[in-house]
């Protein structure tokens, strides 16, 4: 182990204090130290989105975040999306109903990314395809083209994109 730092993280509601090698990225901490293997290592370079989790409610690539930089943060992984009673998140249910995957490797990242994307649109974050008719700061109405653009950071090598878009459309408020 190289130089290390003490870090406290709350993951899916549970607080963990760990001494981590400064080189440890959040993805490896989740998978290797906390045994939360939902977030997947795809490219390990921030290009595929399989490692997407929510940090303080915002979707991020956990493979590019050094764990030492996240002291005090709240992390939600795919394991934390279900309700307290174990009831699947509406988006998880929609993915099942739409059969929005084949091999499933990218699915945890797709789910966390879609949760983040829905929150961003509700908070008035525009995307590259948002038209001039949406007033700055107002919630952005989502349709298929908005979903495709907002989910472009999540690759699916099986090509389940059409079903993923339909699943996300199903849970638009």
């Amino acid at each position: 182990m190289g130089p290390a730092s003490r870090t406290t993280l709350t993951v899916n509601g549970r607080e963990h204090t760990l001494t981590v090698d400064n080189r440890r990225v959040l993805l490896d901490l989740l998978r290797e130290d906390l045994d939360l293997i939902g977030a997947k290592k795809g490219c390990d370079h921030g290009q595929c989105g399989a490692c997407t989790v929510l940090v303080d409610g915002r979707r991020v690539n956990s493979c590019l975040l050094l764990a030492v930089t996240l002291d005090g943060s709240e992390v939600t992984t795919v394991e934390g999306l279900a309700g307290p009673d174990g009831e699947p998140h509406p988006l998880q249910r929609a993915f099942l109903e739409r059969d929005a995957f084949q091999c499933g490797y990218c699915t945890p990242g797709q789910l966390c990314s879609a949760v983040g994307a829905l929150a961003e649109a509700a908070a008035g974050h525009p995307s590259a395809v948002t038209g001039p008719g949406v007033r700055a700061g107002d919630p952005v109405p989502l349709g298929a083209s908005e979903i495709r653009e907002r989910m472009s950071g999540n690759l699916c090598r099986c090509g389940a994109y059409p079903r993923i878009v339909e699943a996300v459309e199903d849970v638009i408020p």
Partner: peptide, 26 residues
């Protein structure tokens, strides 16, 4: 997404939104 940027300097907002992915921009 900042309203003053979207309204005052729209090219900057559009440039940012055309780069990277939602996760990376966060």
């Amino acid at each position: 997404a900042h309203p003053l940027v979207v309204e005052g300097w729209p090219a900057l907002s559009r440039a940012l939104l055309s780069g990277a992915s939602g996760q990376l921009r966060n």
